[in-house]
Every structure is written in C-alpha cells, then in structure tokens.
Amino acid sequence: MSSALLTLADSRLPAGGHAHSGGVEQAVAAGLVHDPGSLAAFLLRRLTTSGAVAAGLASAACQGDDLARLDAEADARTPSPALRAASRQQGRGLVRVGRRAWPSPLWDALPAAPHHPVALGVAAAAGGLTPRDAAAAAAYLSVSGPATAAQRLLAMDPLTVAAVTARLAPDIDAVAGNSTRSADGSLPADTDPLLDLLAEVHSARKDRFFAS
C-alpha cells in the first residue's frame, strides 16, 4: 500500500466532502439515526449499498475502464437526482484538488464534474494506487463522512463515533474485496430506496446544514 491512499481517504483532503452528510442529516431529522447503535446500522446499510457501488466504480476507473461509460454507469445506479448532483459536486471537488496533488494526463479523460467514485478511481491511478486501493478508499469514504456528520448533528461523543467507524473495518474490507467486476463483467448495482428518499426530501429543505 502506498501512503497516497492515506491522503486520498483523509477526511481533511480539501475535496468538499465535509459539507455532505451522506443522508445522515435527513436520517437524523426522521429519527432514524439517534444513537451509536442506529448510526452503526445506518452506516453498515450505506456501506453495503451505495458504498459497494462506489467501490466497484472506483476500482474500474482506476483500472483504466472507459471513464465516460463508467460515469453513465454511475448515473444508472443513482436513481435520485439529488444524489447524482451530490456525487458530481464531490467529484468536481476531488478533481480540483487531485489534479494539483497528483498531476497526470489521466485527469483529462474525465468528463466535467464526474461522479465522485469515478474521480476517485482516477485519483487513485494518478497517485500510483491499485484498483483495490481505490475500492478501499471509496468504501471507507462511504461511511467516514456520514459518521462525522452524525457526530456534529447529534453532538455525539467523538470517541464513540470513532469506535463505530473503526469497528466497521472488516465490513469495509469485505466491500472493497468484492468490488471487482463479476464473471459476467457487471459492476455492483446495489441500491437502497431509503437513501434515495432521504436525499430527495433533504434537498427540498431550506434549513439544512449539509449539501446532501
């Protein structure tokens, strides 16, 4: 493993992720996330659905698959317009910092404001990482940002939230390990209607702290 992976997965990388809650803000408003147990359940659910899809896309993008096609695959796997916008917003942010951090001609093959997992795969490749690394970063980021959002919104004990995230490690590893294309060449396509609904309700709110 290259230390570039640590930079890529660091929540302090200024790619705009801090303003996205991954559905947690609306889940808190709906009473679905209110304590460490319900947060852990939410994060696991997110990891194994949108996290798995992100890991698959990031891995394929890192591998050198056609990026425009992968971007369209990401669209097809993201039914919620609000989530598509959030993903592209974060993709654009990652491209901005990634281009500067890891200069590479690979960036030029990306569409404008690509989906975040696709940009993540390119960032991983530009940083000399493997597809498995890209998948690990995608899987980890699918829970680390939302966990922090819950900590802020509910004023939870940060040590507890860190422990919740740390204990998901085996699940994160499993998702990253299963991210490669299946025998028929297809990418993960798990969806969660709850996350789609939360995102749509959230985007219509005027009093939100998070972009998604």
Binding site: R12, P14, A15, G16, G17, H18, A19, Q89, R92, G93, R96, V97, A211
Partner: peptide, 12 residues
C-alpha cells in the same frame, strides 16, 4: 472549515 480548511463549496 468552508472558508479556510476546505474551500471547495465556496470555490464552486
């Protein structure tokens, strides 16, 4: 954070 440490949203 949005004006100093991670200015992404504001740059956008």
């Amino acid at each position: 954070t949005a004006i100093r440490d991670d200015i992404t949203a504001n740059l956008d």
